[in-house]
Design a protein around this nucleic acid. Structure first.
Length: 648
RNA sequence: GCUGCUUUAGCUCAGCUGGCAGAGCACUUCCUUGGUAAGGAAGAGGUCGACAGUUCGAAUCUGUUAAGCAGCUCCA
C-alpha cells in the first residue's frame, strides 16, 4: 500500500501500482469526472500515471490552470483528429493549450475557410460523442521516428529528433484512428469536452520563423459546460465594445486617412486635448523630481546613428531621407529614439561627478517604420510621442535612480488608473545572441542583469523573465499592458545601459580626478501618449476620469431664456480652468442629455427658468444621473475637488 | 512582410444567380421653447476605396493596388 496525502491534508491509502485515475475513482465518481490531471509531489502528471510510492496527491480539475491546460490540450487533439478525418493530406505541426483556449497548426497547402471550420466543428462534435478513450505509450526514439515517418508527418519527425539526445522514450497519445506525438497530460476520453468552439483561422509560421513555412492555424476554446463557454464568449464580445480603435473613432478622439498613411493617426481635438493634459502633467511631475527638459531635433545625419549603433541594428526600421548607400552625399534619418540626441546635452561641456545624476527628459516624437501588418489603432503607430528620459549616472547611483524611475512610472500609471492591470517583465538578452542583436561582452551583460535583478528583488517586484527581449545595449524592466483582445504591449520601460556612454565618448571626472564612463538609464514615465490614450479609452470604455476629460462640463439650457445664464456660468468655469461648453442648440432637453450622455461628458448642468430664478444649477453626472439642484458654488466645489484629487 | 477576412452616403449597414443606388442615425432648412436618454416636416448628400480586365452591360466576376480588422513574425 502507498500513502497519498491529499490537498486537504488527509491521508488516503491505495494499492501500489494503481493509476491516478483509478485512485480518483475510488475517492468519488464526481471528482473523477471533473479531474483533468493530477499533481504528484507538486509535479503535473497525467491521470494515467501509476503510483508506486507515498506522495502528495492533488487532483486538478478545470478550475485550475493545470486542469484547463490538459482539458484544452485534449480539445486540440480532437481538432487535429477531425482535420485528419476530413483532410487526410494535412500534416500536423503543433497544437498546445493557450490562455483561454487552444490551437493547432496544420500544413495543407491552403487555408481553411469559415465553411471549413464549420465542417471541422461538426466532425469534432462526432468525436466527442464517440467518447473515444485516450491511450498513452512510449517508444524509443528510433522507433518513434520510424513510426512518424510512416505516418507521413515530417513536422513531428523534426520535433521527435530534437528529443533524441534526452535519452527518454518518446510519448504518444492515441485516440481511435488518431495518434499524436505528445507529452500530455490529457483527459481520459474525448467525451469530457462538452463545449467547444473554433474561433479563428490564421496563418502562423512553423517554429515562429518568418523565413520558414507558413502553416494554417486554427484557434478554438473549450469548456466542460456550454454555459461557461457562452459566458466566456459573451465576455469577449463585451470586451471588444471597449476597443479603443472603435470607440476612439466613434467618440472622435482620433481618425486615420488612407492617403496620409498607415500608422499615422490624426488626433482630433478631444484626443489632442487629452494628450496635452497628460504631457503637461508628466512634464511638471518630472520637473518636481529633478528632471531637466530638453528639446532636440527630429532628425539627424546618418553619422549620429552610426555612432549609436542604430544604423547597423535598425536601418530597416528608420525613415531615411536620402540614399543610405551613397556615402558621398548627406543622408538624414528621422529619429527612432532620443538617446543619442540627449547625450549631446551631457557632452556639451566637460562633466564632473558633481553633475550626476543628470536626469534629462523630453516629450519626444519618434518615427519608426513598422512593417505594414503591425499597425493597430493608437497602440502601434509609425509616429508617436513618448515621455522619454535618460538619466546619466555614476555607477553607485544606479540602484537609487532606478528605484526613482520605477516609482515615477508607478505613480504615473497609478494616477491614470492603469497600474492595477500592468505586469512587469524583466527583459534579458539571449546569450546565444541568435541574430547578432546584442552588443557588449557577456561580462557586461552579466553585470547589468545581475544589478537589475538585485534592484528588482530588493524592491519586491513581481516579474516574469523575457529571454531575448532586451534592448541591444542592455536589459529592460518592461511594464506590460494588455488590450481588449488580450494582446500585450510595452507601456513603460526602464533600461540599464552600460555600453552606449563609451561609444559616444561620454565621460565625467570622478572624485579621484580620473575620467570615467557613466551608466545610463533609459526610461519612460508614462510611455507613449498615443498608446496610453488607447489603453485609457479601453480601460474606461471612453468615459475618461474627470481630470483628463477633454470636456469636463456641458451646460444645457432648457430654453433660450436660459442662454444668457448659461453663458455667465460658462465664463465663471472658464476662469477656473474647467473645460466647459454650452449646448445652445434648439433641441429638447431630453435630446441634449441623451447626446451628452452618449458622448460620455462627465457632468452636465441643466439650467432652465427655475435655475435662473433661484440662481442654481441642476447637476447631472454621466455615472449617477440626476443629482438635483444646488448653488453654483457647491457644484463647482465638488467638481474642483474631483479634478484636484485626480479621482478615477 | 506573411495568412485570412473586409471596404457601398459623415456613421452603422441592406443591396439574391451581373440589368436605373437603398434604409436608419447624423447633417441643412422650417415649425416647435420643450425639465433629466431621441418632438415634427422638408431637403441635401454616393465615380459602390483606387486602377486595369472580362462583358452588350460590373457595386456584383477576375487581376493589381491602397486602407481597415484578426493572427503570425517583428518591435531601438
Amino acid at each position: 500500500m502507498v500513502k497519498l496525502t491529499l490537498k486537504d491534508g488527509s491521508v488516503r491509502e491505495a494499492e501500489q501500482g494503481m493509476s491516478a485515475a483509478e485512485i480518483i475513482k475510488g475517492i468519488g465518481m464526481g471528482l473523477y469526472k471533473a479531474a483533468c490531471c493530477v499533481k504528484i509531489d507538486g509535479k503535473v502528471c497525467d491521470l494515467r500515471t501509476v503510483i508506486n510510492n507515498d506522495c502528495n496527491f492533488e487532483v486538478m480539475t478545470f478550475d485550475s490552470d493545470e486542469g484547463k491546460k490538459a482539458f484544452r490540450h485534449t480539445a486540440s487533439h480532437i481538432l487535429a483528429q477531425a482535420v485528419k478525418r476530413l483532410y487526410p493530406e494535412a500534416k500536423l505541426a503543433i497544437g498546445p493549450a493557450i490562455e483561454d483556449g487552444f490551437y493547432y497548426d496544420f500544413d495543407l497547402g491552403k487555408s481553411f475557410t469559415p465553411d471549413d471550420l464549420a465542417k471541422i466543428e461538426a466532425e469534432m462534435k462526432k468525436i466527442v460523442k464517440e467518447d473515444i478513450p485516450l491511450k498513452q505509450y512510449g517508444l524509443p526514439v528510433d522507433e518513434a521516428v520510424a513510426k512518424l515517418e510512416a505516418m507521413g508527418e515530417p513536422y513531428k519527425v523534426e520535433l521527435c529528433k530534437e528529443h533524441a539526445d534526452k535519452g527518454e522514450d518518446i510519448s504518444f497519445y492515441e485516440q481511435g484512428d488518431f495518434t499524436d506525438l505528445c507529452a500530455g497530460p490529457h483527459l481520459m476520453s474525448t467525451g469530457a469536452v462538452k463545449a467547444f468552439k473554433l474561433t479563428a483561422c490564421t496563418g502562423a509560421y512553423w517554429r515562429g520563423d518568418s523565413k520558414g513555412k507558413q502553416l494554417c492555424r486554427v484557434y478554438g476554446t473549450a469548456f466542460p459546460k456550454a454555459s461557461e463557454m457562452e459566458a466566456h464568449l459573451k465576455a469577449l464580445e463585451e470586451a471588444k465594445l471597449r476597443d479603443h480603435n472603435k470607440i476612439g473613432r466613434e467618440l472622435e478622439y482620433f481618425t486615420t486617412v488612407d492617403y496620409i498613411g498607415q500608422g499615422l493617426p490624426i488626433l482630433l481635438p478631444k484626443g489632442a486635448k487629452v494628450v496635452q493634459i497628460l504631457q503637461r502633467w508628466v512634464e511638471d511631475t518630472e520637473a518636481k523630481r529633478g528632471c531637466q527638459l530638453t528639446k532636440t531635433p527630429f532628425m539627424a545625419k546618418r553619422e549620429l546613428y552610426k555612432i549609436s549603433g542604430h544604423w547597423d541594428h535598425y536601418l530597416d526600421g528608420m525613415f531615411v531621407l536620402g540614399d543610405p548607400n551613397d556615402e558621398e552625399k548627406e543622408c538624414f534619418a528621422l529619429r527612432p529614439m532620443t538617446c543619442p540626441f540627449q547625450y549631446q546635452v551631457f557632452l556639451n561641456r566637460q562633466r564632473s561627478y558633481r553633475d550626476l545624476p543628470m536626469r534629462l527628459t523630453e516629450t519626444s516624437t519618434l518615427f519608426r517604420n513598422e512593417d505594414s501588418g503591425e499597425m493597430h489603432g493608437l497602440i502601434r503607430v509609425r509616429q508617436f510621442t513618448i515621455s522619454e528620459g535618460h538619466y546619466i549616472l555614476r555607477p553607485e547611483q544606479l540602484e537609487e535612480e532606478f528605484k526613482g524611475c520605477l516609482e515615477l512610472a508607478k505613480y504615473c500609471l497609478e494616477t491614470v488608473g492603469l497600474l492595477e492591470d500592468c505586469t512587469f517583465r524583466f527583459s534579458q538578452w539571449d546569450p546565444a545572441n541568435p541574430k547578432n542583436k546584442y552588443e557588449g561582452t557577456p561580462e557586461q551583460w552579466e553585470i547589468a542583469q545581475a544589478t537589475m535583478k538585485k534592484i528588482l528583488d530588493h524592491l519586491g517586484i513581481d516579474y516574469t523573465i523575457g529571454i531575448d527581449e532586451a534592448a541591444f545595449y542592455g536589459p529592460k524592466l518592461d511594464i506590460q499592458y494588455k488590450n481588449v483582445f488580450g494582446k500585450e504591449d510595452t507601456l513603460v520601460t526602464i533600461q540599464i545601459d552600460m555600453l552606449l556612454a563609451q561609444r559616444f565618448g561620454m565621460e565625467y571626472i570622478d572624485t579621484d580626478g580620473t575620467k570615467k564612463n557613466p551608466y545610463i538609464i533609459h526610461r519612460t514615465s508614462l510611455g507613449c501618449y498615443e498608446r496610453t490614450l488607447a489603453y485609457l479609452l479601453e480601460k474606461y470604455a471612453g468615459a475618461l476620469p474627470l481630470w483628463m476629460s477633454p470636456e469636463q462640463v456641458r451646460i444645457l439650457p432648457v430654453t433660450d431664456r436660459a442662454k444668457e445664464y448659461a453663458e455667465n456660468i460658462k465664463q465663471k468655469l472658464d476662469d477656473m480652468d474647467i473645460r466647459v461648453t454650452v449646448d445652445n442648440r434648439n433641441e429638447k432637453i431630453g435630446y441634449k442629455i441623451r447626446q451628452a450622455q452618449l458622448e460620455k461628458v462627465p457632468y452636465f448642468f441643466i439650467v432652465g427658468d427655475k435655475e435662473v430664478e433661484e440662481g442654481t444649477v441642476s447637476l447631472r453626472s454621466r455615472k449617477d444621473g440626476d443629482l438635483g439642484a444646488s448653488t453654483l458654488d457647491a457644484v463647482v466645489d465638488k467638481i474642483m475637488k474631483e479634478i484636484v484629487t485626480k479621482a478615477k
